[in-house]
Design a protein around this nucleic acid. Structure first.
Lengths: 229, 229
DNA sequence: ACAAAAGTGTTTGGAATACACCCATGC
DNA sequence: GCATGGGTGTATTCCAAACACTTTTGT
């Protein structure tokens, strides 16, 4: 037989999957790929793949992410481990799901070898997904909300520079509630994570908003998980 | 060769490890086992073991927990996945670490087959641990503190009934700061998670404190991780 | 001048903090 | 009756929520 890696006890396959979230200025979006092969051929799913023997699950997630989006530096954190016995029809698979935040404009979804398509979906337009990815998506959105409830997350979905109202719209959209514009702004500034730049938007048909930027850059997630904000 | 489970691609071994925390009325404690075999023979480590093919990582953690403590219902949540390439000298191993909270008195540490000892350590007396378990411990304590900062966790380390000052001592000990007794009490009650029982402590050489209990029981963790408080 | 969104400040209510006195029990 | 810890209430501070007017820019 062609199988060549043998062990005394059976072992599950290990994969890393990425829930990549973005914001189109209006709604939360998520990057999905269309599966080219069975199982779940034709279904949409989160990008992900098998762990190589010389990489951590984080490195695996980043590698897959790079392959599917062309980008290699994104905010990323462990979301949850999925290990139900029957979750992959091909056999026992343990999946470490990651939550990644991306600037949609920076990303050109590319369909890798295993995919017949790759694109952003508005969160409300996401079809039934392959495997247990529906559950993953729910958890990812919940986790993102949790993080954003402290007003200390989500910036990664905007560009390096952003206006206060872009940030405001993002928060209202993700948290699903109206937030007073003035209180939002002062609270954000009080957090100390943002600074005003001296640049303003141009060619807007009204008063030009100033750009803000993050004081610290989280595009590379903290190496030590205990350092997550 | 004796190896009998063969795969087309190499696979890491998968384990679940448990950081079991308890409270002795004075200090945070953690349950460790002493390794009977190499690697790290004689070193202390968290209980854990290899994933069976018919169980989830949660079930695996609960199984190990049962074997090492005799208990089978504890609050438990996923802590972090450790997957550094060289973290286990025996070969590539991916470990899902869990955080579990236990009532110390309910638990009799038992040294399983692989262990030459099992006992509680005060958090400040923990020796250098095997593998990357030192890092795991740090993260576990941080996570516990995070949870307790909302005054919505840690009850599982006391019994089914507990007095307000037991809870108070627990919080001061874990958070490492003085908390005003009166403010603590009213805040706890405001949380709505506790109720006074009509029972009082007996045989105390001073005014008998009343017992409180959790309104909801979290000894079995929520099946859906999104339901964690 | 007006439309459209940006920018900013003050008032107010509620929660957290600081703080002090009375109560029950065993000795 | 006193020592020990348990139980509770109030004044104050501070943060967050509610809220409205002025500014800039393009047409």
């Amino acid at each position: 037989m062609p199988d060549s890696y043998c062990y005394e006890y059976p072992r599950p396959a290990v994969t890393s999957d990425c829930v990549i979230m973005g914001f189109d200025g209006d709604e939360l979006n998520v990057l999905l790929i269309e599966r080219k092969h069975e199982p779940f051929m034709g279904k949409w799913a989160f990008p992900g793949g098998f762990l190589d023997m010389n990489e951590t699950v984080e490195e695996c997630a980043r590698r897959e992410l790079k392959e599917e989006t062309g980008i290699d530096n994104l905010f990323m954190e462990q979301l949850h481990v999925y290990s139900s016995v029957g979750r992959d029809p091909r056999g026992r698979t343990v999946t470490v799901a990651f939550l990644a935040l991306a600037t949609m404009n920076d990303i050109i979804p590319v369909a890798g070898d295993d995919a017949s398509g790759a694109r952003w979906f508005r969160i409300n337009d996401v079809p039934l997904l392959a495997f247990d990815h529906d559950e993953m998506l729910k958890l990812a959105v919940n986790r993102l909300r949790e993080r954003m409830q402290n007003f200390r997350a989500g910036f990664e979905m905007l560009g390096k520079r952003f206006t206060m109202s872009q940030l405001h719209t993002l928060y209202e959209s993700v948290l699903g509630e109206k937030l007073d514009r003035r209180n939002f702004s002062s609270r954000m500034m009080r957090s100390g994570l943002l600074v005003k730049t001296d640049e303003k938007a141009r060619d807007v048909p009204y008063r030009a908003p100033v750009f803000y930027k993050l004081l610290i850059d989280f595009t590379n997630s903290p190496p030590n998980p205990s350092l997550i904000l």
